[in-house]
Amino acid sequence: MLTGKRIRLLPTSEQETLFRKSAGAARWAYNHYIDMQKETYTRYVASGGKGAKFIPEGEIRRHITRDLKPTSHQWLCEVGCNVVKQAVKDADRAMRGFFTKNRFSQVQITQTFQTVVLREL
């Protein structure tokens, strides 16, 4: 059985800004992963099942780190590198779990970043 503890955070204004930036970066990385996978899957279906069905999550992380961060998405450097990496890993896990049910057209993703819950293992 999982048990959790609720804690109240009282961050300074600088810490609150960093929390919000981290949540925004995570949300962007998650959605970017989903968009790239949707584009790849659409190309796969349009080509009659030829080509790649998925892009590996490591390749998407490398694309974000090597291609986007240094050029058009420098704001991603303001947060820790693990934020983006974990968001892409979480999206990959969700996508793979979703495809085991084989319902690609019914995907809906909603996220809220207002509550932080820490679980003790």
Rank of each mutant, 00 (worst) to 15 (best):
A87R: 00
K50W: 00
T3Y: 07
E59H: 08
T71G: 09
D67T: 14
R20M: 12
S13H: 09
L9Q: 04
K89F: 09
I60A: 01
M95F: 15
G51P: 04
S13N: 13
N31L: 15
V117I: 15
G58A: 07
A52L: 08
Q74P: 00
F99D: 10
K21P: 00
F19D: 06
S22E: 15
P11E: 01
F54Y: 13
Y30G: 00
H63C: 04
Q37L: 11
G48P: 00
S47C: 03
D90G: 04
E16C: 05
E14H: 10
A26S: 14
T12Y: 03
A23N: 14
F98N: 12
G80V: 02
A26V: 02
Q15A: 15
K69G: 02
H63E: 14
G4T: 10
S13D: 15
E14S: 13
D67Y: 06
F113G: 03
A25F: 03
L76V: 05
V117W: 10
T65S: 14
C81V: 06
F54K: 00
M36S: 09
T3D: 04
Q106D: 14
A94R: 11
Q86G: 05
H73G: 02
K53F: 09
G51C: 07
T115P: 00
F104T: 04
L18W: 13
E78S: 12
G49Y: 01
K5T: 14
T115F: 08
E120D: 15
R61A: 09
F99P: 02
L118H: 09
I7Q: 03
A52S: 06
T100E: 10
E78Q: 12
R62I: 08
I7S: 02
A23E: 03
T65R: 14
Y44T: 06
K50E: 04
S105F: 03
